[in-house]
Design a protein around this nucleic acid. Structure first.
Lengths: 205, 205, 205, 205
DNA sequence: AATGAATGAGCATTCATTCAT
DNA sequence: TATGAATGAATGCTCATTCAT
């Protein structure tokens, strides 16, 4: 059933695939040489298609970058919602978020590079993106912290939004550092270290 | 007398100044439209000079960006050393670092934008810069944390380098968020919030 | 049938032609204003194409000049070999060479200008070209003279290579003078005058 | 007397000297990298003066090249006239011309390079120059040949102007070849070879 | 006369995008 | 759908020339 429906939606399996193929190719190329240094023809070559074909699926080079973000964010958000659905404990929710964040980016270095480096290469992109998915993401974190405060588990002398930024900033820096290193270590296990410090602080009790 | 003295002190007040003028202009222009979208002629116009004059002070557009980073980092490091000289308590050192970090960038939005956004717009720059000043910066933080552990003030079940990354990532995210916001709030006071959470954790004791 | 055959033979008649079109345009433009004063856009306009199209066929402006020389030299050498194949008498060989030299350049003033003037406008070009085709050309002349000496027709108290240079220099000067004149006379007939003096000398016997 | 007069003409011996200094510097620089690739600042540096100073003595870079030609041609013509004054035999006059031509250029490689290569780099220059000194030079040669014919020494079935061009072309080629070679041989002795062939021809009598 | 900082016109080359096939 | 040849706007950088000192 599912398959049949799918077949109807994408009569030529090549069509949907090709968009993805281009997106994958773009991620690889952007990660390798940066957005501005990457040529549309590089992406086309990587995708094994003609330059002009790219424009049958994307309006512009700019839109390709935007689509990379949109799709990844969409995937990530939906996967996150599914995973978090049954976790009610605020600390556990934060742990799961940290885990997913680092697993996702740690398992796809090219995507991670585009996220950490290229998507920040312009205030324009950052503003657009922040308006879009990023704010939602930060809000999910903030909500978990607020819930923790209401439940009396988290200190209530801290501002949830600030704590959320710290939490996100910590994870983000883990990814950036991992990318700039030679990646000789696994990224996802760092989630535990982050959680440990974030929840317990640096001070000896 | 004043004039004479001035003339002697700054025989060609234009020379040294002009380099700075160009740098200031570049920071403003880069902050406004991004490095790649900024034209050298934009910088020249902003600086009130001819296009060609830019090249009497900088070898290339690329070198201007590099110089912005170098000069700012130099300033920051030397100011930091001076300020930290007499602070021996590890938590206080971290507090001062956080304060300086947010004060510096919070007092110069254009510079902050260039630092947070443009300097990350390419793996190339990030690698070069990380190899240069950034690693040193992170190491100063790491050392303070290690000292705190030796002094028995900080927990010793945490890795200093990881804690340092979290600390830096937290500050960094404060700056980025502030930039992308409408800057209706002051950045530097956030240092206290960050320190509070970083040191004490989110958990209620 | 003809059409079909043609379509098969020249599926994209534009491809090969366009390179030639650009080359012809470049010869005309270079002849008119000199290599350095000619803009790539001048060539493009003359060829009836867009500026960028030039770069689909040539890597650089420099390469266009090189190609003009390569192609002309190739044509000339192959035509020369064909023509000289059946001429064994040394004086006749020299006569044919002189004839071809002046006919070729005398029938295409623009090409002649580029050869006589532009290709000498830099030691760089001259060295490269002299290393390439020119040395071969001079050697063919030298060989004919040597043959004449062996056959006892030519004086053997003269150095063949020197005589060859004189021969070439004489022809070359005919061309240069013709170019700088208003070309009110035919160039190729001068070959006889050159041969007459070169072979018989100026002295009355 | 001569000296006094000279002192009056050039009150500051530096003035006249500096023009020469610039000219010598320009010859060296042009010979080294070609006219178009040479920058005015290269010439100034070579001459040990400031860029702007060049323009106190020459109106433009273009004029420098022209002056090199003018001065050298002037020198050459006047020296030639002096040398030829007492030589009435046409063959001897030609011998002396050939000797002077190759001695002059053979003793100053840089000047030779500028003459053989740079001065031909544009039809513009060639036209101007040919209109100026070159025509005179060729005419002196032509006159000598005509005299030889009148005196019954030279064949009268040859056109004097054509013979003159051949004579000049032969010498010219000697110089060009010498420049492009590694100059391991002396140029001026080649005058004899040229005369021998030009006068006697290649044919064995 | 001399300086050299400043000027700004000029140009080769690139590359995202289009469109005829 | 797919192609890829063609387009042409866009720009970093150079360098001859000027001019205030």
């Amino acid at each position: 059933m599912r398959k049949a429906a799918k077949a109807v939606t994408e009569p030529r399996s090549g069509a949907g695939d090709k968009r993805s193929t281009i997106l994958r190719a773009a991620i690889k190329v952007f990660a390798g040489k940066g957005y501005f240094s990457s040529k549309v023809s590089d992406i086309a070559r990587e995708a094994g298609i003609a330059d002009g074909t790219v424009y049958l699926y994307f309006k512009s080079k700019d839109e390709i970058l935007r689509s990379i973000f949109d799709r990844a964010m969409e995937d990530f958000i939906s996967e996150g919602k599914r995973e978090l659905k049954d976790i009610s404990s605020p600390p556990d929710r934060l742990r799961r978020i940290a885990g997913l964040h680092l697993e996702k980016l740690g398992s796809d270095r090219d995507l991670a590079v585009v996220f950490q480096v290229e998507l920040r290469g312009s205030t324009k992109f950052m503003r657009e993106f922040s308006a879009a998915g990023f704010a939602d993401y930060l809000d999910i974190i903030r909500a978990a912290i607020e819930d923790g405060q209401k439940a009396g588990i988290f200190r209530d002398d801290i501002k949830p939004i600030t704590a959320a930024k710290i939490f996100y900033g910590a994870l983000d820096e883990m990814v950036t550092n991992w990318i700039l290193s030679d990646q000789s270590y696994q990224l996802s296990p760092m989630a535990d270290d982050v959680m440990n410090i974030f929840l317990g602080g640096v001070f000896r009790q």
